[in-house]
């Protein structure tokens, strides 16, 4: 398998993430609109979500325009992590509105969002595996001597998303007497 094949596999894997990210971005306006009908004084939370979504979309657009590189990829990772965080905030807010929580379309949207987040994480795993295969191939002998002259000078970037569940502070334990 040559470097071209590894490169294409990696690009294909990123396209899979792209599909799932789009799915998530398309779901969010629906969620926000449904929430707006019930929430009277939580405009702040909703606006944070919309802002994070728009930023994530623009990151995705610029990656499509400029190709995969380290800087844009880490920007995308940050934007998506921020979106996940703000969505988590919104979920907590929804808990305060029993009517909204009982709403059927909210339940449906939540299921779709959960599923999409799982899909993103699996697609990301697949993408990172392909990146690892690409980079390992590129850095090994004798490809390391030739790769840059055939247009593969940079290592492919990993996509890192922070999982808010894992990041939440662990309870501190102290043994004072």
């Amino acid at each position: 398998m040559g470097i071209v094949k590894y490169n294409n596999l990696k690009d294909n894997a990123f396209a899979q993430i792209d599909v799932q990210l789009h799915r998530r971005h398309d779901l969010i306006p629906n969620l926000v609109e449904t929430c707006k009908g019930y929430m009277s004084h939580e405009k702040q939370t909703l606006e944070t979500v919309i802002k994070a979504r728009n930023q994530a979309i623009s990151c995705l657009e610029s990656i499509k325009k400029n190709g995969l590189n380290n800087n844009l990829m880490s920007q995308l990772g940050n934007a998506e992590s921020l979106l996940t965080k703000s969505l988590g905030q919104l979920q907590i807010t929804i808990e305060d509105y029993p009517d909204l929580k009982a709403n059927e379309s909210i339940a449906q949207l939540n299921e779709e969002l959960t599923s999409t987040e799982n899909r993103i994480s699996y697609a990301r795993q697949a993408y990172n595996d392909e990146v690892m295969a690409f980079n390992t191939y590129k850095q090994s002998f004798p490809q390391n001597l030739l790769a840059s002259s055939f247009g593969h000078s940079e290592n492919a970037p990993l996509l890192v998303l922070e999982n808010p569940k894992l990041r939440s502070k662990s309870p501190s334990v102290s043994f004072h007497s």
């Binding site: 899979q16 799932q20 299921e111 779709e112 959960t114 599923s115 899909r119 699996y122 697609a123």
Partner: peptide, 8 residues
């Protein structure tokens, strides 16, 4: 949804 996720 779950089946589609696992398929990915």
């Amino acid at each position: 949804n779950i089946v589609e996720e696992i398929a990915i």
